[in-house]
């Protein structure tokens, strides 16, 4: 596998929140046109990893190469150009509440292209068509249901035809049908546009349905990053616990426990 075919390459990523270490030497990569699912329980650091992949925070150390360029060493102008090739659908949608759905989807085109008004409108309607929201462009985000908000956010994320698409918790807060539809949509997008898609989720069923590769995070460390089948067959106890939905059974260190309880008490 030549390094050119890697769309995402994270090497030795270390990040802190205050003095606390959140990501501890994280390494993983995703190939062009692949759907990579980042899985992990709450507090595993998967949201933090996503925010670093999006260039929203500066890591303590390590490199994040997107489409062959290290975003930790980029200046603002290079990052600005790269962002045109990135689409992001946030967990809560993060639609701009002061704009209609249509204006939300049009915004990236208005800011990054010099296309005329009608072209922009047609292109954004095409994307709304893709996510089955045709005819909803004049509604405000507050008038949409949870599933519609996620799909509208997806339409905004893909309106520039990005090479990289990031999707945070697509199924969170959705009923099983809506969440299955969203999974289908993600697969369609990859097949139709050959996007590299990173999906962050803790939803097992959806992860196995869409993933080509799965990266499992736990306490800020990568437990495994491999093809879906290999992860499914893994014998690692923590991964098994996650897959079989067994409660975690960490042994408690007595000294550490006392130290935690009495910390900062004199």
């Amino acid at each position: 596998m030549s390094p050119d075919s890697l769309a995402i390459e994270v090497t030795d990523l270390v990040t802190h929140y205050g003095p606390r270490i959140i990501l501890d030497h994280v390494n993983f990569s995703a190939r062009q046109g692949e759907i990579m699912v980042v899985m992990g329980g709450s507090g595993s650091g998967k949201s933090t990893l996503l925010r670093h992949l999006l260039g929203l925070h500066q890591p303590t150390s390590g490199a994040i190469r997107l489409l062959g360029k290290d975003i930790t060493k980029m200046d603002a102008d290079e990052m600005f150009d790269l962002r045109k090739n990135m689409g992001v659908a946030f967990q809560g949608g993060a639609l701009f509440n002061s704009m209609t759905v249509g204006e939300n989807v049009e915004l990236p085109l208005r800011e990054h292209t010099k296309l005329d008004d009608n072209t922009i409108r047609i292109m954004s309607r095409m994307k709304l068509e893709v996510v089955n929201l045709a005819g909803f462009e004049d509604l405000m985000p507050s008038e949409l249901s949870g599933g519609m908000i996620k799909r509208a956010a997806l339409a905004r994320a893909i309106v520039m035809d990005p090479k990289l698409l990031f999707f945070d918790e697509p199924s969170a807060g959705l009923d099983p049908v809506a969440s299955a539809e969203l999974d289908e949509l993600i697969l369609t997008l990859r097949d139709a546009m050959n996007m590299t898609i990173v999906v962050v989720t803790h939803e097992l069923e959806s992860a196995f349905k869409i993933a080509d590769s799965i990266t499992v995070l736990d306490h800020g460390r990568i437990l495994m990053s491999d093809r879906t089948a290999a992860v499914r067959a893994s014998e690692h106890p923590r991964i098994r616990a996650l897959l079989d939905r067994t409660p975690r059974d960490d042994s408690v260190d007595a000294d550490e426990y006392m130290e935690r309880l009495t910390r900062e008490i004199n």
Partner: peptide
């Protein structure tokens, strides 16, 4: 997260 959304849109 609308501020984050603005930033990732560029």
């Amino acid at each position: 997260q609308e501020i984050d959304a603005l930033r990732v849109i560029g």
